[in-house]
Design a protein around this nucleic acid. Structure first.
Lengths: 224, 224
DNA sequence: ACCTGAACACCGTTCAAGT
DNA sequence: ACCTGAACACCGTTCAAGT
């Protein structure tokens, strides 16, 4: 039992209870009354710790991301392979996505002007920063080795990679993935391989002439 | 005014009213009372046309997808360029996504076992079929010309392309896209170029040896 | 048959009162 | 200071009654 007035321990307990509720039964079962009941406190008390349900949710998300990054950073530090980078990050993020779903996106929340408590917002910004820093440093290392097509704007590369990460996470979190027999591992590795192959410098295959930017009539025509 | 008992016209009117509500004010403003009020009918009447709010939403989505495909199919029929294909589909879908957001995904709803009215489900399955048929026919045409790397499983290719389409749509529908200055057009074209370049057959750039499948130690190492 | 709208159920949020 | 829980607000859904 948490003693009366121990706000730090109580806050953790609420987060823990809410987390298990979310994991076990999904978002629709995450109700403030149920959180209060499982935490052994009154309904109103939850609101003295978190301003709204959304605030509670954001705090849970921030905590989960920190956990993810604590696991991820050591792996990324020693990593030199762009495909592996993609696979490892995508797989970690998929697990977070499976819990928190489409409601929250680390790069969206961290960048946005939502009504979050400043502390939570800062925590999310920090997490996003850790993730971006890790990815950027690998891209830079790759660019220095001349393998990665450094000509493309890093923002574009990051947007493409992150969009694919979230898109794949979404795919395998929805019933969509039951439409074919491929596993997550097969699919992410194929995605990683294809993307990196497309990004990497080198001779342009066949009809392509390697103009990586806007051009109304592209040069990848099948005929002619 | 719709005359008493004209269920066909009334149904259309409800869908139209709900659609404008969704477009103008977003999902949170789509409330059954407001739909009834704007349609000039009683709250209970809405429920004689649509079994639940979700059913109404799915019907709106199905209608919007039909509209999208009516626009898309003629364009796709004469299309031979894989990059253009990606750009055109992604852009159309982004507009749908901006309205209906993450709640519904054509390939998820069509494949799933949700509690939709059979007619709506059938309509969604048909839409998904139209989209997949169009894409597949272009991939096949490309494979015949020997440009597209037909070796890769078409399911994998489709999953990757569709995941990126939804990921990009999500990116540009969230505040995330404000984090950099690139437009939708720039980004989708870059994505299309990179993906198709990665998928296309041809000499493998630099250290790559073109093994497109699972391999724990990938060969895209930066060093060694 | 089709339509009505008051009533119910559910859940996020508030706040005056308790310790 | 911290906690309580009844009460309020809101909105999806139902159903007995109306035409």
């Amino acid at each position: 039992m948490i003693r009366w007035g121990d706000r730090v321990a109580r806050r953790s307990a609420i987060l823990a209870v809410a987390g298990s509720l979310l994991r076990e039964q999904g978002l629709s079962a995450l109700q403030m009354r149920e959180v209060a009941r499982r935490a052994g406190i009154a309904l109103g008390t939850v609101y003295t710790y978190f301003p709204t349900k959304e605030g509670l949710y954001a705090a849970m998300y921030a905590q989960r991301l920190d956990e993810m990054l604590d696991e991820l950073e050591p792996k990324l530090a020693s990593m030199t392979d762009l495909e592996e980078l993609f696979v490892v990050i995508a797989t970690s993020y998929r697990d977070v996505y499976a819990e928190f779903g489409k409601e929250l996106d680390i790069l969206a929340v961290a960048g946005g002007r939502s009504n979050l408590a400043p502390e939570i917002r800062d925590q999310l910004v920090a997490s996003a920063g850790r993730l971006l820093a890790a990815v950027r440093s690998i891209l830079v290392r790759a660019a220095e080795k001349g393998i990665y097509a450094g000509a493309a704007d890093p923002d574009l590369v990051l947007t493409l990679l992150w969009s694919t990460v979230t898109g794949l996470a979404d795919h395998f979190t929805s019933i969509r993935h039951e439409m074919h027999r491929h596993t997550w591992d097969d699919t992410v590795r194929f995605a990683a391989h294809t993307l990196i192959r497309g990004l990497v410098e080198g001779p342009v295959p066949q009809a392509f002439s390697g103009m990586p930017q806007i051009d109304a009539e592209s040069d990848a025509r099948i005929e002619g």
